[in-house]
Amino acid sequence: MIPAKFDYIKVGSVSEAINMLEKHGDEAKILAGGHSLIPAMKLRLSRPEMLIDISGISGMDTISEDDDEIVVGANCTHSAIASSELVNSQLNILAQTAKCIGDIQVRNRGTIGGSLAHADPASDYPATILACDAKIEVEGKSGKRTIDATDFFLGIFTTALTEDELITAIRFPKVVNGSYHKFFQSASRFAVVGVAAVKEGDSVKVGVTGVSGTPYRATAVENAYDGTSSAASHAVDDVDVMSDHFAGEEYRSHLAKVMVKKALEA
């Protein structure tokens, strides 16, 4: 399998990346880990004419503490996140999530920024990003801005990023009581259903991936939460549930409730 021809540039700074994005418009794609993009290009389902490799931008692969927040650089690999002491101690739910992604080799190369920008409806991070109320820091030709998790995912492979923007970091609040629960698709190992829950006092925030074309906050569950897991029955209230040969609508809806229940009980 060979991708269609393209040009490649490895940029050294965010501004350089933005300039290239601006110059090439929708013919360009950002290359982060490449683990979603390159297979799609090989199958010629995606055929960008310019790849902008951002892996060399310094400072984008660090994980740091900023008061009550943990800032994860967009170029952090899933394995860096999974093994980070800071993440494991202050934001354990994110380490749990990262450990569920792909396999060793994929985790060594795939990045959180790349995964979020790709917005595969069965990817894992969105559930956790949503449940944590994380903020996505992006930069484009008109400067920096921060997008709330709930505003970021717009649909299947669609995000709030404009054509000239890239993700630079994700800012998480520290989370004491959070967990991620995934039901694996048996072939791809993506999430049929992935549920992240963050508990704070009497309330809970629940993010769900895999169930709908757009990952969502299960507000119906959150509203009905009474400290028990009974609110799980609201997991797919008002949700347009996806269907495929591994999980039809009925089964996927059921799984969503099961996984939300697990998350609420954790």
């Binding site: 698709q185 048996s186 072939a187 791809s188 993506f190 040969h245």
Partner: peptide, 23 residues
Amino acid sequence: LLEEVVYDEGGQMISGSYMDYAM
């Protein structure tokens, strides 16, 4: 437990990669 080649009614294969054919 896992494997199945699935063709749809029109003869398209919906299990034609390791993303869809479970081994």
